[in-house]
Design a protein around this nucleic acid. Structure first.
Lengths: 111, 111
DNA sequence: TTTTTTCATCGCAATTTTACGATAAAAAAT
DNA sequence: ATTTTTTATCGTAAAATTGCGATGAAAAAA
């Protein structure tokens, strides 16, 4: 165990979950926020902003990249990362479409 | 380790991360979608829809509840769960505000 | 009262996540 | 050629997650 039974769920559910999971850590949220602010893509300056060790930040960047939320290219010694706006938009879209209230009736809950 | 250094990050980052983390599993996405569809709040019928053991579904519901995405009440023998639309809206809002492109300049990335 | 239904919780095992220091690897600077 | 800078990766440890069966607990049905 410890592993999600991804095959048991729809591709959509898995896709949304993967994107959400990538955002499920404050460091990764902070990194993505940083990348959103500096539209010139930052490099190792991220490490200075995030209160974690360099290796840990690198690991988080790798996860964001694996999830498609970030892209990166090597530029000489430095490494350049960029936010992927399309992936963020995709996340927003899925949130809207997946969890739309059913019908136009009363959506209040009796709980 | 294995623990996030939550104190090192802003409340906003932690809040967004917590909500995203709760959605970071396909079963929880499926459960929330189910609750969104049946605006009359479902109870143990969720277990029939989710391809996991009853105890596991119960655990996922507990997590969704802890994150505030779901509310639940006991109704006799049965247990009733409801989606929390406000929390979902909050997540959407945070996604929009946190990751808004900086300025109105060129947002294209050179990466 | 006994049995059944419905659900939460406990205990466990396998795996993943988080975090760090140490170490590579490769370009740049000296 | 050597040193420094920058970043990725490896190895490790602690903790969290995922999942299940078994076991409670409490209302409902018999």
């Amino acid at each position: 165990m410890g592993t999600s039974k991804t095959t048991a769920f729809s591709d959509l559910d898995n896709e949304l979950a993967a994107l959400a999971k990538a955002l499920g850590h404050p460091a990764r949220v902070a990194i993505l926020r940083e990348l959103a602010n500096c539209n010139a893509c930052v490099c190792g300056d991220i490490v200075e902003v995030i209160p974690l060790a360099q290796s840990t930040v690198s690991q988080h960047l790798k996860e964001l990249k694996a999830a498609g939320l970030v892209s990166g290219t090597v530029e000489g010694v430095k490494s350049c990362y960029c936010i992927n706006w399309a992936a963020l938009a995709r996340l927003r879209d899925m949130l809207n479409s997946c969890f739309a209230p059913a019908g136009s009736e009363n959506n209040d809950c009796s709980c």
